[in-house]
Nucleic acid binder design. Sequence first.
DNA 1: TTAACTAATGACAACGTTTGCAGTAATTAT
DNA 2: ATAATTACTGCAAACGTTGTCATTAGTTAA
Lengths: 337, 337
Amino acid sequence: MSARLIDIARKTGYSVSTVSRVLNQKPGKYPVHEKTQKQILAAAEELGYRPNIIARNLRLRKTREIGMVVPDISKRFFSFLVKIIAKHLREFDYKMIVYDADEDTGIEKDAITNLLAKKVDGLIVCPVGVESRHLEQTIQSGIPFLTMDRCFEHLKADSISVDNYNGARIAVEYLIAEGHHKIGVIHGLQGTWPNEMRLKGYQDALKQAGIKAEKRYNQCDSFGTFNGYLEMHQMLRLDDPPTAVFFAGGYILLGALKAIREKNLNVPRDISFITFDDPTYAMQLTPPISAVAQPIEEVAAMAVKLLLRRMAEPDADIENVLLQPQLIVRDSVAKLI
Amino acid sequence: MSARLIDIARKTGYSVSTVSRVLNQKPGKYPVHEKTQKQILAAAEELGYRPNIIARNLRLRKTREIGMVVPDISKRFFSFLVKIIAKHLREFDYKMIVYDADEDTGIEKDAITNLLAKKVDGLIVCPVGVESRHLEQTIQSGIPFLTMDRCFEHLKADSISVDNYNGARIAVEYLIAEGHHKIGVIHGLQGTWPNEMRLKGYQDALKQAGIKAEKRYNQCDSFGTFNGYLEMHQMLRLDDPPTAVFFAGGYILLGALKAIREKNLNVPRDISFITFDDPTYAMQLTPPISAVAQPIEEVAAMAVKLLLRRMAEPDADIENVLLQPQLIVRDSVAKLI
DNA sequence: TTAACTAATGACAACGTTTGCAGTAATTAT
DNA sequence: ATAATTACTGCAAACGTTGTCATTAGTTAA
């Protein structure tokens, strides 16, 4: 068992109070004789003293910990987000406790409950996306709280995400500007906020250009690779397939690309596409893929800013921030005009 | 402030002890009258009682938490590892606290210190890889401890990693079997265990085949994309460039591929290669890339098994487990015979 | 009837900190 | 010389649990 304050106290002959004061280096509040300090510091070093954070947290009723829950930490978007947020928090001397909800609302619920019971000082949730009642309850509890990415519009809480609507819109507008009229979309899980927004962006871009959104050009199921593969095949099997396709994100690109290869089609000569999300490998594929990149670093920085503000001023007005994604033009879209 | 045991006690008129007993549902140890139970349960529900885990942990001197430190959580290898390990731990009712060391030994050290101070019941570290003194100290502390991936041979602790030596060896043996004699290697950060092992596997495979390992075919610096790009360029600029190259892992592949493209070379006609690690996109590239895949799920499962065993039997013999990676043949290697 | 048990509950002492308050000795002001 | 101030230190009460030990009342055995 590791050394405690009382062990140092006994060893040096001073009281626990004095030892505590020395080790916490509280500036001038309670002065401690220099000789005393030296002795205590030496004894602490010798005994290999490490403060028991649990006891401290209990006493202080503060943890300097921020809880975070993400739907799938193995996805780069989230793991990178986690990394950057943790890095920013470190600067403010906060630790982060991340839980992976594994795309399961039940686990998400448990994770939040546990974090509240651990008395984290603040909480960031990237909701799995299907249910929000437990989030409302969490807000009730009064903990500084922030949703990210798959936000719910009706929640009375700060939120930060990228402008999925606009990102999809500028992608599709780009396709149209390059002369495409028959534009398909392969999108992800229906009912989730980002997916709906991206789909709406696609539809509005078409409408604005006076193009009718063809039902048969609209495929969906999930953001997974296999879905991308199946849907792309289906789309290519149509009598008059689209000349360009918008992938709504995630791993659809990978699967769709495989389908295109199997049909022995050339990108962008035979088929053009652009994808939401910009994975690291997008620029290494043949051809390099045009994409709409989410500004993850900015999102992370903003998240920290919003949460710290909420912690400092619990009654500040609620902010719902939307950050703009960026169109990255590479070579996967043919110019038709 | 959330409700405490004492609030329920006051509300129902029972003592804190009784309330605690009811809420913890300890089987038959101390019987509580059924009516009492009902009242207490009802009051707990009504007040929205959530146990304070900090107080509980302090009292029990157990946390049911496992600490984990990884060098870079944004790398899929680690984020996936974290996910799977956390999932397994969940089954045993353990939570995981992960910290990202950001490839910085200083941060790694702090993270470990913090986890020890948090009194986690066990600790898994994937070391950054350059220093190990703090790990020895950690072992001294007596906490159930496990290193993964970038292990240190001299550490007296359980460890689990993939057989980097053999993985590299079977990859290079495969190249030789396909008729290649001029075989280059682009490897990663020198001095790290996996890198050295992979390099040795490469060298031994050549030696075994009676091929001299040419110094000029041996490039290294880091596992990053940019390194892969530079080194590949350099290798292609040689008078008699290798016909095949072994990439020692990570993101070297991406950069090297870019260099090959810039030289307008065809894979595998002009140059063949195989890479350690099998990223999800490897099979979607043109051509699909042959690779040596690390069995991450198995590694994760074994890690949990080893750690739980160590927690149950602190004095069991130390185990250093090596799991075999798998050769995945796709189309990036030309058959020369 | 009394002793011995059981069922149900409460009092209380931890767990290891931090910190307000009180106390003592030494120093300075009056 | 006394009062006021300062420098240093210790006491003890929290923080919210859990579990040991007592205690009470009721029940069964002798």
